[in-house]
Computed example of a mutant assay.
Amino acid sequence: MQHQHITTVTTIIPSGPDSERYAQSIRIGERDQDLSGLASVGYSLAHTTTIPGPGCVTIIDTLTRHAND
């Protein structure tokens, strides 16, 4: 029987003045590492959504992986 595993990666990126650029770069780099790590164990990106908010943007990535039992 085949099961599907679902996981999410949530990244909060500060938005604002140029002084936030370093923090933005760090968060984007962390997101890239998280997604690469999950891809290396068989997860595929299924959906990405962004949610703008006051002072930040939230990115939610949904990943899936098929596993046989």
Rank of each mutant, 00 (worst) to 15 (best):
R21V: 09
S44Q: 12
A46M: 08
T62F: 03
R65E: 01
H5T: 08
A39F: 03
S44W: 12
T62W: 06
Y43P: 00
I26T: 05
G55N: 04
G53W: 06
Q24T: 03
A23Y: 03
G42S: 01
L35K: 10
D18G: 11
G55C: 00
M1I: 14
A46I: 01
I26Y: 08
A46V: 06
T11S: 03
P14E: 02
L45W: 06
T7P: 06
S19P: 04
E30M: 10
N68H: 15
I13A: 00
R27L: 03
T8N: 04
L38Q: 04
N68D: 10
Q2S: 12
H5G: 05
H47T: 11
E30C: 06
T8V: 04
T58F: 01
R65C: 02
T50G: 11
T49D: 08
I26N: 06
T7I: 08
T50H: 15
T50K: 12
S15H: 09
E20T: 09
G42A: 03
G29F: 05
T64N: 07
D18Y: 13
M1L: 09
R21F: 11
T10F: 02
I13V: 08
A67W: 13
Y43G: 00
A67I: 12
P52F: 00
I28C: 08
T64Q: 04
A23E: 06
P14K: 10
P54V: 06
G29W: 11
Q4W: 08
I51G: 01
H47Q: 07
D69S: 11
I28M: 15
D18V: 11
T64D: 01
P52Y: 02
S36Q: 15
H66N: 12
P14L: 00
R21T: 13
I60P: 04
H3Q: 13
H5K: 14
S15K: 10
I51Y: 11
A39E: 05
Q33G: 05
T8D: 01
I59K: 04
Y22W: 09
H5L: 12
T62R: 09
T64Y: 10
S40E: 07
S19C: 06
R27E: 04
I60W: 02
E20Q: 14
G53P: 07
S25E: 08
I59Q: 10
S19A: 08
L45K: 08
T48H: 12
I51N: 11
T58E: 03
L63G: 00
P17M: 10
T48Q: 07
A46K: 14
I13W: 01
T49V: 09
D34M: 13
I12A: 04
L45C: 03
G42D: 02
H66F: 15
T49S: 14
L45M: 09
D61S: 09
S15I: 10
Y22E: 13
T7D: 00
